[in-house]
């Protein structure tokens, strides 16, 4: 039963969705503070290359993830500086960050006399449990058969959800994203809140990048993450700025990424569908979901922060 295509596809969807959960939850936290950071692709790539470097140098996966998190946060500081302190157009700054991060990652990958590029990872995240309960029918591979980052990503989503909706700091964060002037008059330091949460978003994007270079495709090559950073931005809307929904949106997307290949192996009539059409599947799915979510009355319930992407001037109303 564990060999059925359904189970195997769902297991693969969880693996492919995991980096997207990190990045999407991070971007949700960032956007909840009213800052739009389109540089996710750049931050993920920086996380991927620096995490790979740390593991490659020290042989420690834990250090790899820690370094990736720090690197992602450091890069996102640039965006916080330009959008919070300099108050520049956040779309321009975010896109610049995506391009900059991509270039910097590939530059770092070939720097030095013994460059990282083209090397397989020294260590790879393996499933926590093999055999035993991991072989139980259906629930074994689906629930117990993953590496530690898969569980961590779900914990991150849970913690983020609790933080956003059940803590005082979460309330301040949401207030800053909705109406920074009111939040400021209630004693919240708007720019500090925005700095912190942009960097939390960057840190999580870095972790998502490291999942690629240390687990999914454990190697460093110039562009090892596909379009994950851009997909994460779309998933924020799909998840309507709620961390729990990001988990399901990411898995849905992971499933679509996988199903396009599984269908080709299923024989008639599935394999008659042109593969180019199947390659569009994840994106078609995202567009349909967005149309459904953002149309009519549902749009109001969506939860987009009202002050998203609007620079905040302290004494200018």
């Amino acid at each position: 039963m564990n060999d059925s295509q359904l189970v195997l596809t769902l297991v693969a969807a969880i693996g492919l969705g995991t980096p997207l959960i990190f990045a999407t939850v991070g971007e949700i936290i960032t956007e909840r503070s009213g800052i739009l950071n389109l540089g996710v692709q750049g931050m993920m790539l920086i996380g991927a290359v620096s995490g790979f470097w740390a593991t490659f140098t020290t042989g420690s996966l834990l250090l790899g993830v820690i370094v990736a998190v720090i690197a992602g946060a450091a890069l996102s500081w640039l965006h916080a500086f330009t959008s919070v302190t300099l108050r520049v157009n956040q779309i321009v700054s975010g896109l610049a960050l995506a391009i900059f991060g991509t270039g910097l990652a590939s530059f770092l990958g070939r720097a030095g006399s013994n460059p990282l590029v083209g090397n397989p990872s020294r260590k790879v995240f393996e499933p926590l449990i093999t055999g035993g309960i991991a072989e139980w029918p259906v629930v074994g591979p689906l629930i117990f058969g993953h590496d530690i980052l898969v569980y961590l990503s779900i914990i991150v989503a849970g913690v983020a959800s609790y933080y956003l909706f059940h803590t005082r700091m979460g309330l301040s964060l949401r207030a800053v994203g909705e109406d920074p002037a009111s939040a400021e008059s209630a004693g919240v330091n708007v720019s500090r809140v925005r700095y912190i949460h942009v960097m939390v978003g960057g840190a999580l994007a870095g972790a998502g990048g490291a999942y690629f270079s240390l687990a999914l495709t454990p190697t460093w090559q110039d562009d090892p993450i596909g379009a994950a950073g851009w997909i994460a931005i779309a998933l924020v809307i799909l998840a309507s700025w709620r961390p729990w929904r990001a988990v399901f949106a990411a898995y849905l997307f992971g499933a679509a990424e996988r199903v396009q290949f599984t269908l080709q192996t299923l024989g008639d009539p599935w394999s008659n569908i042109p593969s180019t059409l199947l390659a569009m599947l994840p994106f078609i799915l995202a567009i349909i979901a967005m149309i459904v979510l953002t149309s009519g009355k549902r749009a109001r319930l969506l939860g987009a922060p009202a002050a998203l992407a609007i620079p905040y001037f302290r004494e200018q109303r």
């Binding site: 060999d3 693969a12 090559q221 562009d223 090892p224 993450i225 290949f261 180019t276």
Partner: peptide, 25 residues
């Protein structure tokens, strides 16, 4: 020989996923 098309020359996550779908088949 079961063929799966990826529509990419170089996209590691996609190509890895395609290989996994073949292994699972």
């Amino acid at each position: 020989v079961q063929v799966v098309w990826t529509s990419t020359w170089f996209d590691p996550p996609k190509e890895g996923t395609a290989a996994e779908s073949l292994l699972d088949a």
